[in-house]
Amino acid sequence: MKLVDFHMDLAELDIAMPGEWPRAVKALCFVLVAATVLALGYLVSIADKRAELLLAEHREDGLHREFAASRAMAAGLAKLRARDAAASAALAEMIERLPLETEVPALVEDITRAAVDNDLAIDRIDLADERQRGFYRELPIAIGVVGDYHDLGAFASVIASLPRLVTMHDFDLAPRSGPRNLSLTIEARTYRYPATHDPSPPAGSEPESTLSPLE
């Protein structure tokens, strides 16, 4: 069929009677319809896949953010645990340095010995009443000694380096006549943790008998 004849056939087609169309025209229409259907189906399928791809990319971004946040949280938790362990170790070490109630007289003896060894005259070394300070107890020790500047400094250094924890407060340094030309009044404080085990029984208490009441 020539192109001119084919064009004339198309011009003479009766749309209301497609059954009478030439075979070539029918074939062409079928191909066009099939191509259109396939193209539309392809576009619809691609649109669905593209939407799924965009959704997957969005989810991936969210998972990346969640992973980064979880990783940062895990790193922070590890640091927090390390700091907590260090603080617990420091607290345990400090508690170990706190004297038991039965060790307080020995601590007073250490302070007295430090004064004597540094050639100081002792005016007073007196225990004051125990004070409750939150979760620990404070035991003040009033100290009054007389000596020269260097001896007083050496005495303070010895007190600060005692094995048991002792802090010094309320310094009062006054001049006086004589070879020991300075008077030092100070309040030393040691501390006791109530949970610290004290093996001695309370004063005035009797040990429990292990004998049966019938014996």
Rank of each mutant, 00 (worst) to 15 (best):
V145T: 01
V158P: 01
R59M: 10
E138T: 07
L139S: 00
D117S: 05
Y42V: 03
D148A: 08
H150L: 10
A90D: 12
R131S: 11
K79T: 13
D110Y: 00
E130T: 02
V44L: 11
A115I: 01
L40D: 05
Y136K: 07
D151V: 01
P105H: 04
E60W: 07
M73L: 15
Y149P: 00
A72P: 06
F67T: 08
R81E: 13
N118K: 05
D61C: 03
L63Y: 05
E130C: 04
G134I: 09
D84W: 05
H150Q: 13
Q132M: 13
A160S: 15
R81N: 14
R83W: 05
E109D: 09
E52N: 06
Q132C: 09
K49N: 10
Y149S: 11
F135A: 09
Q132H: 14
A89P: 04
A121M: 03
A87V: 06
A72D: 15
A78D: 11
E103N: 03
K79V: 11
V44Q: 10
R137T: 07
R65A: 15
T102S: 15
P105E: 04
G134R: 05
P99Q: 02
I122L: 06
A72M: 13
A82L: 11
L55A: 15
A69S: 13
E101L: 09
E52I: 04
R50E: 15
A92N: 10
V104E: 01
V158Y: 05
A74C: 12
G144C: 06
R131I: 13
A89W: 06
Y136M: 12
A90L: 07
L98R: 04
A75H: 11
V146A: 03
F67C: 08
R81C: 04
D123N: 04
L53D: 11
A142E: 07
L55H: 13
T112N: 07
T102V: 07
I46W: 10
A85P: 06
V104T: 02
A115D: 01
E57V: 10
S70E: 14
K49D: 10
L100V: 08
H58Q: 14
R124H: 07
A78Y: 03
D123Q: 03
E103V: 02
G147D: 01
A56V: 09
G62K: 10
A89C: 06
G62C: 07
L63D: 03
I111N: 00
E138I: 04
I125Q: 00
V108A: 02
A115Y: 00
E101A: 07
R137A: 10
D148M: 05
V104L: 09
A142G: 02
D48C: 11
L54G: 07
L127K: 03
A56E: 12
A47L: 11
R71C: 09
M94T: 14
E93M: 14
A78V: 10
I141D: 02
D48E: 15
I159E: 08
K49R: 11
L100K: 13
E66Y: 08
I141N: 01
R131V: 14
D61F: 06
A72G: 07
L43F: 11
